[in-house]
Amino acid sequence: MQIQVKFFASLREALGVSADSVHLPGDSGNAADVLAALRARGGAWIEALAEERSFRVAVDQCMATTASAVRHGSEVAFFPPVTGG
């Protein structure tokens, strides 16, 4: 299945892209599977999306977790936590 991926703020800067796509095998998966596929690219992908880093996830424009399901055509977005005042 094909998943559309978007990156925002410092993640976009670290990876040098604002959007990409990931192919996942099978008919079902979750945002953690998307992360694993991205990390498998190595280099900056492993560093920017490291497990110890803090970032937020959205699936199909709704706040989500890495356990949230994705399906063919889903949009998964990753972005750093936002602070403000």
Rank of each mutant, 00 (worst) to 15 (best):
M1W: 05
M1I: 10
M1Q: 03
I3K: 00
Q4I: 09
V5K: 03
F8E: 02
A9S: 15
S10A: 11
L11W: 06
R12G: 05
E13Q: 15
G16I: 10
G16N: 06
V17Y: 02
V17P: 00
S18K: 14
S18Y: 05
S18L: 04
A19Q: 14
A19I: 01
D20F: 03
S21M: 08
V22P: 04
V22H: 08
H23D: 14
L24Q: 03
L24G: 05
P25C: 01
G26R: 04
D27C: 05
S28C: 07
A31W: 09
D33W: 06
D33N: 12
D33K: 09
V34M: 05
L35F: 02
L35T: 04
A36R: 14
G42E: 09
G43T: 02
G43F: 07
G43L: 03
G43D: 15
A44Q: 13
A44C: 08
W45D: 04
E47W: 00
L49I: 10
L49V: 07
A50V: 05
A50G: 13
A50T: 10
A50E: 13
A50Y: 06
E51L: 10
E51H: 10
S54F: 07
F55W: 15
R56W: 02
R56K: 13
A58Y: 08
V59I: 11
Q61A: 10
M63D: 11
M63L: 12
M63T: 02
A64F: 11
A64V: 13
T65G: 13
T66I: 13
A67W: 02
A67F: 03
A67N: 13
S68G: 07
S68T: 15
S68A: 12
A69G: 11
A69I: 12
A69D: 12
V70M: 07
V70D: 07
V70A: 09
H72Q: 13
H72D: 12
G73F: 00
E75L: 15
E75R: 11
F78A: 04
F79C: 04
P80W: 09
P81W: 11
P81I: 12
V82M: 08
G85Q: 05
G85F: 00
